[in-house]
Design a binder for these strands. Structure first.
Lengths: 340, 340
DNA sequence: TTGAAAGCGGTACCAA
DNA sequence: TTGGTACCGCTTTCAA
């Protein structure tokens, strides 16, 4: 037996009628029960249970001028490095009764603009972004958005409101330095996206380049901007291209762990020993790589902590705490395992 | 220079004033521009651009009685098999201007009840659930929810509204049969969760058990209900426990790929050859396993297709199409690779 | 401690 | 093709 399609939720008014009070009293029981006498409260609570009343968020948001929503836009979800951040954020927010709206800008930048409008339409408490927005139209849109804008996984020079992340430039520089000084590789190549949409990868490349120019005057980079999304196959292609072009390369710094894993597999397939013949390092320290076959040297990023900090900014703001730091650096670690 | 915190968005009324029309006309330009004359439309559009007007979703939802929101509750985000489904769902919905609210019920069932209420408060167009809800209180809550409830990644006997997935029982049965008949293993064990929160894993076990009882009268299962979440380490522990208890086991069917990977690693560590000494199969066909070290025999699930189907149910419903199938079976494939 | 009335910013419905 | 009016369900403000 199908249930009626037009079934309506009971309203606060109906709860009030059943309990014999005014609807504002019902509202108080829900939002500040300490202002209501015990007797009244119990009457109201019983009416709420009897009717299975669930308040309508839209009405509350409209009336009070504040939603219980946080919006996040990340570049992609599947296989994403942002997962631990988003997961943690979602957990903390839900404890405060805040909902997380997730959108991904996998496709065009045009799309992203549409999506941004759709997110703004929700009048969220906070807007979490994984991509830097340099485009003027979007920046101006964001600058008048009226809620906390939090950029994550990077530390832009001038955050719109807040930034929680680390310096991808520094991380790129550090890993290159680590390979050069601590591991003594002298012919280091970079594999990843050098420009375009993924600014974070680009900054890692800049860090690599900066170190190289200071110490070796040589930049060996295979750019995936055109082809790839940074998947396993790109790592395969990248390793081959680099070794073709610069056969004496002794280490490859990949801008992502998945790329690095692809490169390691391909190296082994070619009969090369890792790290003896070719060293490979990654970025991100994704959950799996460490655990099976490949013990990848990588840059460990504290993704969960980023989520925690973001949540604290939003929730703290609600509670009236003053957020002093516009830019929170959660740092990173170079983790040496067996591929370098 | 910090922007003012109390900056207000312009309203439809303000757009109307600037354009010299009534606000309902602005609404029409936005929602059904074909009803408005070209001259008027252009005046209004110019006013919208000038003010940077973005309509407020809450007001629209309240007034029209329909939100532009779909809510999804999945058990966990990080490392999750649901990612491809959610990603795909999100992509399609956003093309229709629908936002996806994501919540995860990683913690207690108590929590899940709270979250369910919070989601219902949004009056979503659709509610997507990855966990079967057998608990009476929740069922009754869901049964009066007034929007499409779509259960995914399984095919319950009596879906609340819709189900999109496959039979975990059949899949468990098929894999066991495959190991037994096609691969000729005769001492097959099961590693996974046998009961409790994760009904899907439980159903796979039931499928395994059903086959075993029919063909061998023996059930060898290591239950992770108490200990584990199905991570790599659980796979390690599981393999050892099974081999201790039943040393002549020649194949282990793991209820998840990650578990299986852990088991393969541990087997190799113990000096066992896979599959010669011990065969191992997984479930899910997660992106990575195939690509590096381990070519895992597994059950491939069409996660993206589930996302597509779910989106179509919701969007199709909006467009008035009639959804005939309450239960959509997307099937699964047994993929034999080198671990069996 | 409780209540009445006036909105919040849109949309539905009917009229012009 | 356009506009007026009455809401949607809740919170705010002020009064009792």
């Amino acid at each position: 037996m199908p249930r009626p399609i037009d079934e309506r939720w009971s309203t606060m008014k109906e709860v009030a009628n059943l309990a014999g009070v005014a609807k504002i009293t019902v509202s108080r029981v829900l939002r500040s029960p300490e202002l209501v006498s015990k007797t009244t409260r119990e009457k109201v609570e019983s009416a709420i249970n009897k009717l299975g009343y669930v308040p309508e968020a839209a009405a509350g948001a409209l009336s009070s001028g504040r939603s219980q929503i946080v919006a996040a836009n990340i570049s992609t979800l599947s296989g994403s490095i942002f997962l631990s951040t988003i997961n943690q954020l979602s957990n903390i927010l839900s404890k405060h009764g805040i909902q997380l709206i997730l959108s991904n800008s996998e496709y065009s930048e045009e799309m992203e603009f549409q999506q941004l409008s759709a997110l703004i339409a929700q009048r969220p408490l906070g807007l979490v972004l994984s991509n830097a927005f340099h485009n003027t139209k979007r920046r101006s849109m964001l600058s008048r958005i009226g809620c906390k804008v939090i950029e994550i996984w990077d530390l832009p020079e001038n955050p719109i409101d807040y930034a929680v992340g680390f310096s991808n430039f520094d991380a790129g520089y550090s890993m290159t330095q680590f390979l050069f000084k601590d591991c003594c590789y002298k012919k280091i190549a970079f594999l990843g996206t050098k420009q375009g949409f993924d600014r974070r990868s680009e900054m890692r490349f800049q860090g690599y380049k900066d170190f190289q120019l200071k110490h070796t005057s040589e930049v060996r980079a295979f750019d995936l901007t055109a082809s790839g999304k940074g998947n396993i196959h790109d790592g395969t292609v990248g390793l081959n291209s680099i070794l073709n072009k610069w056969p004496d390369t002794d280490a490859i710094f990949c801008s992502g762990d998945v790329l690095a894993i692809g490169a390691v597999c391909e190296a082994r397939r070619r009969g090369l020993r890792v790290p003896k013949d070719i060293a490979i390092s990654g970025f991100g320290d994704i959950e799996f790589s460490n655990e099976y076959g490949i013990e990848l040297t990588t840059v460990k990023v504290r993704g969960e902590e980023i989520g925690t900090r973001v949540a604290n900014i939003i929730v703290g703001d609600i509670e009236g705490a003053f957020n002093i730091n516009k830019s929170i650096d959660v740092g990173y670690d170079i983790v040496r395992r067996s591929t370098t």
